[in-house]
Design a protein around this nucleic acid. Structure first.
Length: 365
DNA sequence: GATGCGGTAAACACTC
DNA sequence: AGAGTGTTTACCGCAT
């Protein structure tokens, strides 16, 4: 009777708080780590990052990020993660501990049209539409005047993370199920394994009321994005569940509509155990990008997924039209880049920002 | 206020 | 018989 078509992911009840989930703007519209990442790209081309303009607003306090070194990465407060992880296996773009943090979930307006421009080479470096402009100049020391930065927490002393074992993950059940299935080697899981995956990566559910399992089953049954397939021998009771390929892009784009947990969420236990497995995102990226039949196929969807999860729900809403064009084109299995080099650069920027190695050229260099 | 969506609870049938 | 699984219905809260 109820035709549940997951085209929009509403937030979980009770986690909205007073902060707007969408459209809210942080004082620094880009996460510091992302700014550093962009700055490194600029630096790698022999230039230094001087100032950043976001929607016409100049952000000039990022130069204390020390873009040339990773030290600032280490200084960036990151919550500890209980599930450990093998950081050494992480892809280069993900080898810091940002993946272990949910702090990015509080960053809004992360990628509102990234446009990298340089004084000398504007055309070549233009990636996306101009709401964010990074101006660079030849190697010069950064200005000394600084806007005071918030006190930094030593990397070994994580601050209170925005989520923990006592708070629900900021993902709908659809997204949790999607992540679980996509993380499975066969991209198919029995419901019991879906439970296990969710508990493993979001320990909140370990002690959550039993009703959530009902919700998972309810979601599997009603959501057209999930399909039941014949159970493989030995699976036992129940069937294997898969993601309908035709609805996969819907789920991926749904990540962009996930709510952002309000910063005022109470954090009674700062164990950070609610953070997803630090390997989840790069793994998911590889998994989503795996078994492609042609270079680039599926990777942009993976990039979109990773961006949405890594830099915060809502990030896809903030991508410029070109990025959505690329994503939707990929969702339709079209990789013709009719938009020309601009579109290709946009696509590759997505990959780079998501930490997925492109088959072709790096985008931001 | 209407509508859509996601979460939750519950009932029921089916399978192991 | 009991537990697990899958389906369906109903209701609620929130956002648009």
């Amino acid at each position: 009777m109820i035709g549940l078509n997951i085209t929009k992911m509403a937030p979980m009840r009770g986690e909205r708080g007073g902060s707007p989930a969408r459209g809210a703007r942080a004082s620094l519209p880009l996460p510091r780590r992302l700014i550093r990442q962009i700055a490194r790209h600029v630096a790698s081309s022999g230039r230094s990052l001087r100032r950043l303009e976001v929607s016409g607003r100049v952000i000039d306090n990022f130069d204390d990020l020390d873009v040339g070194s990773d030290e600032s990465d280490m200084e960036t407060p990151q919550p500890a993660v209980a599930c450990g992880g093998n950081a050494g296996n992480l892809p280069p773009a993900d080898n810091d501990d940002d993946l272990t943090s949910l702090s990015w979930l509080q960053d809004r307006n992360l990628l509102r049209g990234i446009n990298l421009t340089t004084k000398s080479d504007t055309e070549d470096s233009k990636i996306l539409r101009n709401e964010v402009i990074i101006k660079t100049e030849s190697k010069t020391p950064p200005p000394t005047a600084r806007v005071p930065s918030p006190p930094r927490t030593p990397c070994k002393a994580p601050p209170s993370p925005p989520a923990n074992t006592h708070t629900k993950p900021p993902y709908s059940f659809s997204c949790l199920i999607f992540m679980a299935i996509e993380a499975a080697p066969a991209r198919a899981l029995p419901v019991k394994e879906i439970y296990a995956w969710i508990i493993r990566h979001f320990p909140y559910f370990k002690h959550a009321p039993q009703g959530w399992k009902n919700s998972v089953r309810h979601n599997l049954s009603l959501n057209k994005c999930f399909h039941k397939v014949a159970a493989a021998p030995g699976v036992g009771k129940g069937s294997l569940w898969t993601v309908d390929p035709q609805h996969r892009s819907t789920l991926i784009q749904a990540f962009g509509r996930q709510p952002i947990p309000p910063p005022e969420i109470e954090v009674p236990d700062s164990g950070g155990k609610n953070a997803p497995d630090p390997q989840l995102f790069p793994y998911l990226a590889r998994r989503l990008a795996a078994d492609t039949t042609e270079p680039g196929a599926d990777e942009y969807l993976a990039a979109a997924t990773v961006l949405a999860m890594k830099y915060g729900p809502g990030v896809l809403d903030q991508l410029p039209p070109e990025a959505h064009l690329v994503i939707s084109r990929c969702a339709r299995d079209e990789h013709s880049y009719s938009g020309g080099g601009e579109e290709r650069r946009t696509a590759e920027a997505l990959l780079n920002l998501a930490g997925i190695t492109s088959h072709t050229q790096p985008a931001l260099s």
